[in-house]
Design a protein around this nucleic acid. Sequence first.
DNA 1: CTTGTGTCCTGTAGGC
DNA 2: TGCCTACAGGACACAA
Length: 278
Amino acid sequence: MPELPEVETIRRELEPLLAGRRIAGVSIGRPDIVGFPSAREFARQVPGHSIVELRRRGKYLIIGLDRGRELIVHLRLSGHLEVVPGAKKVEYERVRFDLSDGQVLAFAEPRVLGRVYFVETSRYPNTLTGMVKMGPEPIHPGFGYDYLSDSLRGRKAPVKSLLLDQKVCCGIGNIYSDEALFRARVRPSRPAGRLSTAEVKRLAAALRDVLNDGIKWCGTTMTDSRYQRPNGGVGSFQNHLAVFDREGEACRRRGCRGRIKRVRIGNRSSHFCPSCQK
DNA sequence: CTTGTGTCCTGTAGGC
DNA sequence: TGCCTACAGGACACAA
């Protein structure tokens, strides 16, 4: 669920709550949540480190520690982070970090698919190769027509599948890929290598714009979504979705009489307007 | 290398 | 109401 805008919102709101605190203790409710090193080593090595800053790479949240170490969190489908008073119980809490100010950073993850890693800065283990191979940030200046055009050239897979490939453009998930394709007026099923120059240009701009809009609205919280901000608040980009989760509803483009269709592409549901997207 | 499929794990919505 | 099945926004291993 959390894609780039959600993770970026979490980063911004969590940093003032964490920066400068020391991690006094770690308790692990589910050892399989720890991706590196072993759960036992994780619980032994993390305490004593202080939190310096929070960064983000794609959908990974990077908690920068002192002495050249990082705590890396991936929320996958259902994970979230909360900072709560030490006495409070957090539902689905899998890992708990006791902080020096008496607060607790809780990693809650109902589905147990999310992971947390403790690593040396920029020295990533095999369980984190996704970090090393990750493509550029679509909201950074280096991501534009030239890069995207090179990445899609000759590819026969549906353009939607390539947008979800973190090696092509990191941070994109099912929601923002559907929304970007709508803005670019390109159907998700189109073979990626067959897009025209104008379409690739529109797509590169749409990816950047839709992610920035998602950040502006503090992410997307659906009714069945567990995405929440560290203070318990929710996002509001769901109020601005053009196609995602709108199957059968009217297209919102002025003058368009189309209805949003849902199809399966690469085992993921994809939403588009048959009238606007070619 | 590219592409498509299955799997991890749990909770929940919706059908009967 | 209660049971059962299908599906969920991610990532990766693996087969063809």
